[in-house]
Design a protein around this nucleic acid. Structure first.
Lengths: 151, 151
DNA sequence: TATTGTTATACTCTATAACTATA
DNA sequence: TATAGTTATAGAGTATAACAATA
């Protein structure tokens, strides 16, 4: 009783089910946004995590590693090398925390301040591009809904 | 001329700038959605990529590796081991493609069909949970906007 | 000449356990 | 006893180059 009917094959992939799922769409959008980010930030030699750290230090002078980890959902051991590299590049400095002897506060150097300012300008252009596919009010809605998911 | 003014420290982290960026929000939401997914899918021993592949094979019998790669933004070499493992678990079978001698068509086994059906039911519960934080119409809007980003 | 599937390989990202210094 | 930072290490996930078979 061999099966001699021809097996089915696929002309156009039906993605309707996956596209109804949050995780699939979040991953695809995350990949596209990440690729565009890398493309523009290569000239600063900043990966997404580097940019996030520098930007948080700019807006929160004296922030500690622990606070960075909590904010960015990074494990403490994975932040050590990242901050160390930024320090070796002369972009950030670590000083003893004035109120907690266990902690180190992070501060931008003048070179770091300049780099972050340039990088944030570039990121603003990026967001403007995303908003061109989306419309400013759609972008605001998207951010608001994403925040509802992770908060 | 030593600096003897006390250095600043951070009480509450100001995340307002990062929260205005698409990439940051997409990553955070993706992490939360992924964690909830893993939590529920552990009993099926399916990672997100495994589920996506099985689900695509269910809805597209005979789909090829190349089509899976394009749909899921996975590199071909990284799909080989994934499909191989599903095959060794007796969930999928690979048969020669009826129209292209280079390709292999993927098909679910009866065991694979049962597992995917159970897994999709579980994922439906997951989405319902997300929708509880979001409202059904907000979830629809979120998916639509994410698709605009990556298409 | 281009494409499918594959092997080998390397790089990045992320996670866990254990240690130290301080709270 | 708990927390901040660190070291060492292991596991995912993802990327590129190169090859055989087929289009």
């Amino acid at each position: 009783m061999s099966q001699d009917k021809e097996l089915p094959w696929v002309e156009t992939v039906d993605t309707s089910y996956l596209e109804s799922l949050l995780g699939y769409n979040a991953r695809r959008a995350f990949l596209v946004a990440g690729a565009k980010f890398s493309e523009r930030m290569d000239r600063f030699d900043l990966k997404p995590a580097d940019f996030s750290v520098l930007s948080l230090v700019l807006h929160n002078p004296g922030i500690t590693s622990r606070q960075l980890c909590a904010t960015l959902a990074i494990q403490p051991p994975n932040l050590v090398g990242l901050v160390g590299a930024l320090e070796r590049r002369g972009l950030v400095e670590r000083h003893p925390h004035p109120r907690d002897g266990r902690a180190m506060g992070l501060h931008l150097t003048p070179a770091g301040e300049k780099l972050v300012a340039d990088a944030e300008r570039t990121v603003a252009e990026l967001e403007a591009e995303a908003a061109s596919a989306l419309s400013p009010s759609e972008l605001r809605t998207l951010l608001k809904l994403l925040q509802k998911v992770y908060r």
